[in-house]
Design a protein around this nucleic acid. Structure first.
Lengths: 205, 205
DNA sequence: AAAAATAATATCGAAACGAAACTATTTTCT
DNA sequence: AGAAAATAGTTTCGTTTCGATATTATTTTT
């Protein structure tokens, strides 16, 4: 199987689910924005971060966000720590809509994979995303669980939170560990796990 | 690793390489069209087939193709067998341009995968593409090599071509076996090979 | 305190998109 | 054979996306 064919499949699969415009009165870009703000952590829910994620300009991102605010899917507040920055939050309407996400067909297709293949696929894709992002000078946008900046001992004693972000120097609660971050840095340790030694299936469920 | 995260990775990776607009004076859609017509077989190099592949309307596809013809990347001829249909062919300029395809970063990322992972990835993605295409009522666009319609005994005796397409009832030369076809039908036999029995790595190189 | 950098927005023209209307062929039906 | 339906392709329209650029407000650096 050729490199080209695999790349083709990736591009085609990605695009097939992107081009589902105008479901529930939302365009493709608007769906992407809604998904992004539902998955990004509090350091990353800004127009600029979404622009980077979506691979577009801040100007375009502003437009998309403005339309979502007008349709009551997002609420924008000024950042308290940085007067230039704003924070986007989903409304209840947005959360309702996301539960009927047409993106679900792709998620289902992943679910339909034989056991073992899914974890391996995740590792391969994360690896590739890192490679492509590096090559294109963009950010890979990953989760704390495999991020270099994750610190803390994992045990919560005397009311202290078990994890913290060493980059933002902020404590992290458990729910935040699975959210996407603009400042994600692939960790060396997790890279070790991704080397497919022995050619067997991977370890993570 | 959650289904959602894998789907996210797929979508993100696909989009990251799609949004490389305006390299070499071509937009993203124009790049996709050029790639398509360089990879599609003679039954599939039509505006309608590209529209289906790209997940857009015939009208939009017409526009994209028109712009590529104006820029001397494509040549359009009337079909001899069907007066309604037209056939698109790449010019030398297009072939030159394709050799500097920015899509190459994704291809390289696939090439950088450890041996074994690539073939497995291809199988998983083809499987998923079939699933998603089915769900969305779209065509998966695959190659003869794993197509139900591939016929012939593989041996070329007395000037006869070794393979033929049972759908179009046309002989196929070897180069055409690796091209994309709008009428691709995943074969049962190849599906058997994709069942990951034993959980080991796959068979195809 | 001045200069540079950053976050967000606004504006412009070009392209993409879905929808719909339209022409020209081919196929199907009677 | 002739009418009706289906198909392939194009055109037009209004909306959205997009890159580029300029502008404003705030923060950081010097």
């Amino acid at each position: 199987m050729s490199k080209l064919r695999v790349a083709e499949l990736l591009a085609h699969l990605g695009r097939m689910t992107y081009g589902n415009g105008f479901v529930e009165d939302l365009t493709s870009a608007q769906w992407t924005a809604l998904r992004y703000f539902s998955r990004a952590n509090r350091f990353s829910r800004t127009p600029s971060a979404f622009a980077e994620f979506h691979g577009t300009t801040r100007g375009t991102a502003s437009q998309t966000i403005k339309s979502l605010i007008a349709k009551r899917y997002l609420i924008q507040t000024r950042s308290e720590t940085d007067g230039r920055s704003t924070l986007l939050e989903l409304t209840g309407k947005a959360r309702d809509t996301l539960s009927n996400d047409p993106f679900e067909t792709l998620v289902e297709a992943v679910g339909a994979l034989p056991s073992g293949a899914r974890g391996l696929l995740a590792n391969v894709l994360e690896r590739m995303l890192g490679h492509v992002a590096m090559e294109c000078g963009k950010r890979p946008f990953g989760m704390c669980t495999s991020c270099e900046h994750l610190g803390g001992d994992g045990c919560c004693q005397e009311g202290r939170l078990p994890y913290k972000c060493l980059f933002f120097n902020e404590p992290l609660n458990v729910a935040e560990l699975g959210q996407l971050c603009i400042n994600y840095e692939p960790s060396k340790a997790s890279a070790m796990n991704r080397t497919f030694k022995g050619g067997g299936l991977d370890l993570s469920s």
